[in-house]
Design a protein around this nucleic acid. Sequence first.
DNA 1: TAAATTGATGAATTAAATTCATATATGCTT
DNA 2: AAGCATATATGAATTTAATTCATCAATTTA
Lengths: 309, 309
Amino acid sequence: MLALKHLRLIEVLNETGSLTRAATRLFLTQSALSHQLVALEAHYGLMLFVRARPLRLTPAGEYLLALAREILPRIDTAKRDLARLAEDNQPGKLRIAVECHTCYDWLMPAMDAYRTHWPEVEMDLVGGFHTDPIALLAEDKADLVIVSEAQPQKGVVFNPLFRYEMLALMATGHKLADKAYLTAKDFSHDPLITYPAPDRLLDLVRRVLKPSGINPERRHAELTIAIVQLVASRKGLAALPAWAVQSYLERGYVVARPITKKGLWSGLYTAARADDAQRAFHLDFIATLQEQAFMTLPGIEPLLENEYE
Amino acid sequence: MLALKHLRLIEVLNETGSLTRAATRLFLTQSALSHQLVALEAHYGLMLFVRARPLRLTPAGEYLLALAREILPRIDTAKRDLARLAEDNQPGKLRIAVECHTCYDWLMPAMDAYRTHWPEVEMDLVGGFHTDPIALLAEDKADLVIVSEAQPQKGVVFNPLFRYEMLALMATGHKLADKAYLTAKDFSHDPLITYPAPDRLLDLVRRVLKPSGINPERRHAELTIAIVQLVASRKGLAALPAWAVQSYLERGYVVARPITKKGLWSGLYTAARADDAQRAFHLDFIATLQEQAFMTLPGIEPLLENEYE
DNA sequence: TAAATTGATGAATTAAATTCATATATGCTT
DNA sequence: AAGCATATATGAATTTAATTCATCAATTTA
């Protein structure tokens, strides 16, 4: 009894305040965590969390949280050190190319966290836009690319990061705001405000508008905040990841609606050369990206299976 | 991967130098530990132990040993603290009565170790000899008794500690030393040197000599070393636990032989009042006794099942 | 007040760990 | 160097533990 998984549970449960959200972060079900928690509490005859929403720690729980914060980083460091020992000590390189504009928001903190763990790995961002970013791998101009589709390709390994919902943005009081969700046709009257990227990379255009033969007038902006500002100023509609606009929605700057009845969900993957893809420094970067994403981005979901180290 | 059990394995394996001995200490089979070790090594693509006898740590193994020594005591302390939190904070009392003379050898270090973990528990040794030590529990003169037999009794809970072999001791060159093992008849000619205890507590007499109707002349000594000295001086035979005489055998003072073909094996148990027996401070004392015994006494075996916390 | 979300729970399922049986390796003795 | 004793490795069978599934009860939100 009292295993590392219990310490992880307590740490995540304290952060999320909910078994359901903790389950997402730990790639397990709510039921699994409930069983774990109940078993641990029963074993010591103690309550660890007050059963209210959000879940709050009891003093005994606080004690274990302190233990977790002391022990787990030490264990994680040890795992990395072991992985390093197993490698042939040739330091790795991570030149990262990013397809999606919004990604920078969470990529930066992830890179920061990673740098402290792997100071010897040289990191770089490959700037500029590229029609085929995966080609950068073969050309040896990038070592890791973040893309929105895992198109199987020889010598390239993809790893799922997470999936998220794209929301349609409109000005408050826009007539479309009366609808529960938008369809392709709803986009035909207003200009569409997007990042300056080819249609291929715009999920809304590629997967919803183009199949319906709808091609609205365009207007471009470089930054998320600029797009939101244009929408709020009734210059048109936009489609952005839910996690990128959450804060603007809360403040009431704009209104968001799902796209199509089921919602428009996109995924993100990493792509890398096959030989790099199994090295420890590389796998740990992916793990860090995910951890950071699930920690900071609201409403994202796991994408396929994932192993927690 | 990399769980606390792996750290325990590495710690014990480093101490014992052998999977077989480590398995005894951890109440598992050699096979289980071999699988654990191989799995861990395979996961990180590293060797942790050099496969020679005795098993020796590789640098990666040393790293994990250091980790184990850092982490495990912290975890063990936390377990005790949790148990303490669950109790109603009423400190426990441990008045200990011991039936067997030799037991003091390992009881003292165990009590020392325990005292550092549970400073608030008042410990005492109940001196003198008692015809029925278990009665001391009901009389409230002792809280824990170490006995050699678990005679079911109402209100008394027994816990197995370990089993060990009793060896017959004789002077070097004694004619019985030619035999591979001794039988009851072999004890009829020489005096029998024992602790000053009633026959009921002498396993050799109770289980081997008495059933055969053999009753040799007696001679008593208080201390193990005195008994060994008398045997070496050809004053008679003795029967003592293998772990109590190992060092004398190694130095060639006396010779030891098994008693009966299968060997004469005895067990040790703790006995306590039922209400005490499930309290954390009490269970942890038993765990400490066992840990100390398996750590210091050679040739002892587990007795029935046991849960490692 | 209804609807939605969340946690709890027993049973079924799946996965993991351990044992068993046995082969292979190592070290010691003669 | 051969044989013996002891230790480790390993695949398969078994057991045990953990997770999921399906649902209910409780709580919060609309």
